[in-house]
Write a protein that binds this DNA or RNA. Structure first.
Lengths: 227, 227
DNA sequence: GCGATGTCTGTGACTAAGTCACACAGGGGT
DNA sequence: ACCCCTGTGTGACTTAGTCACAGACATCGC
């Protein structure tokens, strides 16, 4: 009882779409949802695997990326609290194999829904349909932005953008190796190193082993936005 | 009556998901669907436009592409008979603006469905849900393949692939300018010209103004598949 | 403290791709 | 014939990606 209530409280706090608690869908959701914890570095989906469950994150983030034959990587999008991996959803709903890899970047708290219920609720609940289609739409847009980035933008702008977005706003630090940034953007480590060195010469950042300190956010923003 | 029956026949022939004619959804579909013809070159959706109708193609093809600030283009996917543009679908269902451009490559016959019915049928018909999710899944996969291509593959392989896929199999001809191929792949005309010249020197193709003749399909296939 | 080891970063030389400017070719129109 | 427009070719240059290897730093055991 108490445990159940606590679970219910956590869920409705983290998943805004459950607001309407009197909805029969919500009741069913609370009943079927199973809470789990995934460790940092754990793989959620492998390339080509089919999915029997849909995970919705409550805490932490996961990175969904594509792995090239050469071993290069590129991030497609991230999944955060309240979100879920559309690729999983889409392969549940169409039985197409999962075309990418998902891995936990932090410890992840999530609820897991069996594929059958994912399907069933689509026919029963507007709330659920809206949630799922919202996911699909934002992910499609995400991935199209990646295409645009890779196809049209210069590497220095893309790196500037990445630093801008992912530097911690209080510590002004980004904890990442050059290789990690390269994998993020689908390029190679040397290229990242060289461009970071450029930025350092322009006094925009300070490069240290495993971390980048942002010295001049304004200049970085400029660099990011110029053509 | 006769017109109605003819429409019904055309639709159920072109749209396989209407097979189950006794389904109330199918009846509703026949009633609501409006047939239209779009001319070659006509734009279906502009960047950022919101969509009030979903078009399902019966004949012809449309190209969905992203336009960069510099004027460069890259094709995201094509829509053929029986298919529909997921981006339209996704923006109907989530009210996110359309993040790309869709244009008719040929004269296009299509049926048009009002957004409201697209929504309504999702709750009422498994057939329709499966159709829509099938679309979403294949498009997601398409676009992810574009990301993979752009991020990881060399230009000559990508051009070889493109020739391989889009050369007419009976005439051995591909009617396209170098600029068109460049827009397809998100690169620039000069690069395409140079690589086509290479292929010509290897006696794989013959380049003429506005057309490419395939001389050695086997060699092209090799070129396409090598690393 | 001292190496030993593994990870992370720097660099030079080279190839591939993209950009820019401009020349030239082919194929209609008039 | 001529012009004109579109399509193609080319050289010089910049930006990216690749390869091979050299250092630099951190951690651990000793």
């Amino acid at each position: 009882m108490t445990i159940d209530n606590q679970k219910r409280a956590t869920l409705s706090q983290k998943l805004r779409f459950l607001d309407q608690a009197d909805d029969p869908f919500s009741r069913d959701f609370f009943e079927k949802a199973v809470m789990t914890t995934l460790k940092k570095g754990q793989y959620v989906c492998h390339e080509g695997s089919s999915c029997s469950h849909l995970a919705i994150l409550l805490d932490g983030t996961a990175r969904v990326y594509k792995l090239g034959e050469s071993g290069k990587e590129i991030t497609l999008y991230r999944v955060g609290p309240g979100e879920s991996c559309v690729l999983t959803a889409s392969c549940i709903l169409s039985e197409v194999p999962f075309p990418a890899i998902a891995v936990c970047e932090t410890t992840v708290e999530a609820v897991v829904i069996p594929a059958g219920d994912v399907q069933k609720w689509l026919s029963e609940s507007v709330t659920w349909r809206n949630y799922i289609f919202g996911l699909v739409a934002t992910r499609l847009t995400n991935i199209i932005n990646v295409v645009e980035d890779v196809a049209f933008r210069r590497m220095d702008k893309r790196i500037a953008e990445h630093l801008y977005k992912r530097t911690d706003s209080t510590s002004h630090l980004l904890l990442a190796t050059h290789q990690e940034i390269a994998s993020e953007l689908g390029t190679s480590r040397e290229v990242v190193s060289r461009i970071l060195k450029e930025f350092e010469l322009e006094a925009i950042i300070k490069v240290t082993r495993g971390a980048i300190e942002l010295l001049d956010p304004k200049k970085l923003d400029q660099r990011r936005c110029e053509i």
